[in-house]
Design a protein around this nucleic acid. Structure first.
Lengths: 333, 333
DNA sequence: TTGAAAGCGTTACCAC
DNA sequence: GTGGTAACGCTTTCAA
């Protein structure tokens, strides 16, 4: 492994200073065309490679945006990430991704690791953080965008929606079609905070619409998915008929519940309604189609990218952007 | 925007030199326990965050490993990523992730961007690359691991399996249970190269086992998922009964097909077998359970991480680690 | 057990 | 048009 070729090496060969090389390589007009051409040629010949690390160090600009997601394996979050990274691709900004695995303590460690890379902004999924995390971020004074939530005390910018309110549209829909006794199926307390908000929103909505008090059925620690919904429904069996509707924290959970209903000969939606959240692909493909809430995950990603661009350019940008959330009436309610 | 807290700031506050801070933060035994404790406490109070950019600059090691995935929203790849990043978490190595969106031209741009960050190694999902990509990588002389494939001309290390052979186990299973006329459902030519290998493997296996020549049904450009399987099956309707078995490129596609079969009154597996690939969660949760192939995605991630650790500690000669692949007999065959 | 000095490769700033 | 100098935050090396 030969020593790295630096600007100084190029400079010596050409017979100019390294400053001139630096300028020439950036195609700075103040360098004469001749010199520029010679420098660029010699750089090529010597196999010069630009050192991004040195640039980042010198300018104190890493070219990174740190992004946290609860999980990488979630169609909604993945879509937000995809949209954001597409929109950022041309700007030369790269995304430094970290997954919290739905653990708020993990978020703190993660953010510490991400901050060590000097990101120019921080995008966090979710609006709940430990006090230490909040302090860490505020001490840095770097731009922050919280997404997929509407935090009561935002750390900075927000691109999201109220999970509680979104759940209210589901409950309203069920109340409207005469369902009185609802149960909520989601993860245990603690891990999934957007899930917890949905639960709280559902319970509050049931009260608001004068339904019977809502039961909460625990499907296990986050993340909960198809198999957890299925396992929970299997445990209850036909006892699920004690309810008029099973309100699930997400579509995969709803799918799991739904499948077990078939096994136990429970007629959905005649005897029991089942609802999901997130408008995952499965909601539209499975039979019967699941009633759910569509969140425009792509728009969250794109809006976040736009906001980042505006922040970097010093242009004014709204503090909070709400994204639309719409009820998707399926065949399970 | 307050100025960043550096080791010098911590040093001043504690009343020691920044060298001592540097050592104390690394828990260097040569620093007295007292001093270490004080330094660490003050660092916390001041909200000190380690500057990895400076470290990378000073040591000329970026601390990055670049990883490419076809898509972030795929349970299998996500699991590999999760396992890899967990295993790497303690080593101080961070992952720089890029998604190719199943486009081989995109891979080239992506790798160029990733290489600009001076990664210490490159992990690529898949063993097919453009000639330019291959040259780019070889010119760099950095360690490479190709995963989820068994490339004929590896660029370096390999952690994977033969997609073609894996598909053969499915076809063998179908042949064994008397299915003679098979159709393959997958993405159009071009994008999904592991999918293409599975298709080729299935066709070759059908010939090998003396079955009728296999038809290929095009579900559209990659990535194909539930809805594409469903749309294709909807187009065919009961004409699917021209086949004894529908061999799908993945479980989600198989699920889409399966659901349509129910709609058209096709009895699976009596009249028609349907198989998937990848042992996704849905394969075990849906009814009937999908016959599939389990690939140990987690093991791929862990083995890759181990290999990376070995590479960083010395440079072993490139080698290939095969991961196990097992048939999961479900109720659709 | 602790500290001082040097330097990693680049660019901002100021001279000329 | 071009060059000299200093600095970004850290660790290696040597000295005390």
């Amino acid at each position: 492994m030969t020593a790295r070729v630096t600007m100084r090496d190029v400079a010596k060969t050409v017979g100019v200073s390294s400053m001139t090389v630096s300028r020439a390589l950036r195609d700075d007009e103040t360098v004469s065309a001749d010199t520029r051409a010679r420098v660029q040629q010699v750089a090529n010949e010597l196999g010069y490679v630009y050192d991004t690390t040195a640039l980042a160090f010198r300018t104190q600009k890493s070219g990174f945006v740190a992004v946290t997601l609860p999980s990488i394996n979630n169609a909604n979050f993945a879509e937000t990430y995809r949209a954001m990274s597409n929109a950022l691709a041309d700007s030369g900004i790269q995304i430094l991704l970290g997954a919290t695995n739905y653990r708020i303590e993990r978020e703190e460690t993660l953010i510490r690791q991400l901050l060590a890379r000097n990101p120019e902004a921080l995008v966090m999924t979710g609006g709940f953080h430990t006090e230490a995390t909040r302090e860490l971020i505020q001490a840095r004074g770097l731009p922050v965008i919280e997404i997929w939530d509407l935090p009561s005390e935002p750390l900075g910018h927000v691109v999201g929606f109220s999970n509680a309110k979104a759940m209210e549209t589901i409950v309203a829909h069920l109340a409207h079609s005469g369902r009185r006794k609802l149960a909520f199926v989601g993860a245990s307390e603690g891990g999934d905070l957007r899930g917890a908000e949905r639960r709280a929103g559902a319970i509050a909505a049931a009260e608001k619409f004068g339904l019977e008090p809502m039961d909460v059925l625990d499907a296990g620690p986050a993340p909960v998915s198809m198999r957890h919904g299925a396992a929970l429904a299997a445990k209850f069996g036909r006892d699920l008929l004690a309810y008029d509707a099973i309100v699930c924290v997400s579509d995969p959970v709803a799918f799991g519940v739904l499948n077990q209903c078939r096994r136990f000969g429970i007629d959905v939606p005649e005897q029991l309604a089942v609802t999901g959240f997130g408008n995952f692909e499965i909601a539209a493909v499975c039979e019967p189609r699941i009633t759910t809430v569509d969140v425009d995950a792509r728009q969250i990603g794109e809006t976040t990218a736009t906001m980042l661009a505006e922040i970097f350019e010093g242009r004014p940008t709204p503090r909070t952007e709400k994204v639309s959330v719409t009820l998707v009436a399926g065949e399970t309610s």
